[in-house]
Simulated assay, not measured.
Amino acid sequence: MAFEALSENLNNTGEKTQEYVETTAEYYKLRLFKSSMKFATSLISMLVLGSVALLLLSFMSFGVALYLSRIIGYPSSGFFVIGGFFLVVFLFTYFFGRKMIVKTILEKFSELIVEEDDTSPSDIANERAKSKKTKGTP
């Protein structure tokens, strides 16, 4: 009788272990899908907004360059002034802003991947075990 009970407990343990592994695998698949979708939508959103901002900046720069050319009196002088301005902005960004840009991007995307409200597989397994005990399932 004790051997049968031990055998049954071992079978139940094997089944529970297999169920836990399958549940954990499903959890990580869903979490990977969620993270990749958040990353993809965020990336697409940034690309669209960046494209619109680039178009806006291009047209504004072109207009200011034409206006400066008219004020200075030489046809290409406004374009050189605007080009020089963007060169200075680029150099400042390259030498002083790279670390800040990398830090901001890493923080943004790590927030998308790691969330505080995510439950771990062990929490899910514990909740399932509690719910089965309350239902009377051995």
Rank of each mutant, 00 (worst) to 15 (best):
L6T: 08
L6P: 05
L6C: 10
L6G: 05
S7A: 14
S7L: 07
S7M: 10
S7V: 15
S7Y: 10
E8P: 04
E8V: 04
E8R: 03
E8C: 02
E8S: 05
E8M: 02
N9P: 02
N9T: 08
N9D: 14
N9F: 08
N9A: 15
L10Y: 09
L10K: 10
L10F: 12
L10A: 07
L10W: 08
N11K: 04
N12H: 01
N12M: 04
N12K: 05
N12C: 03
N12S: 01
T13F: 07
T13H: 14
T13P: 06
G14K: 10
E15P: 02
E15D: 09
E15V: 07
K16P: 01
T17M: 14
T17E: 14
T17R: 13
T17S: 15
Q18W: 12
Q18R: 09
Q18H: 13
Q18F: 09
Q18K: 11
Q18L: 11
Q18E: 12
E19F: 07
E19Q: 12
E19S: 12
E19G: 06
Y20G: 10
Y20T: 12
V21P: 05
E22Y: 07
E22H: 11
E22P: 09
E22M: 13
T24G: 10
T24L: 11
E26H: 01
E26L: 05
E26P: 01
Y27M: 10
Y27Q: 13
Y27E: 08
Y28E: 01
Y28S: 00
Y28C: 00
Y28T: 00
Y28D: 00
K29T: 11
K29R: 15
K29L: 11
K29P: 13
L30G: 15
L30S: 15
L30A: 15
R31T: 02
R31C: 08
R31N: 08
L32W: 10
L32F: 10
L32V: 02
L32A: 08
L32G: 07
L32Q: 04
F33Q: 06
F33K: 09
K34M: 01
K34Y: 03
K34N: 12
S35E: 00
S35R: 01
S35M: 09
S36L: 09
S36F: 10
S36P: 04
F39W: 06
F39I: 01
A40T: 01
T41S: 06
T41Q: 05
S42Y: 05
S42H: 03
L43C: 14
L43V: 13
L43M: 15
L43P: 09
L43Y: 13
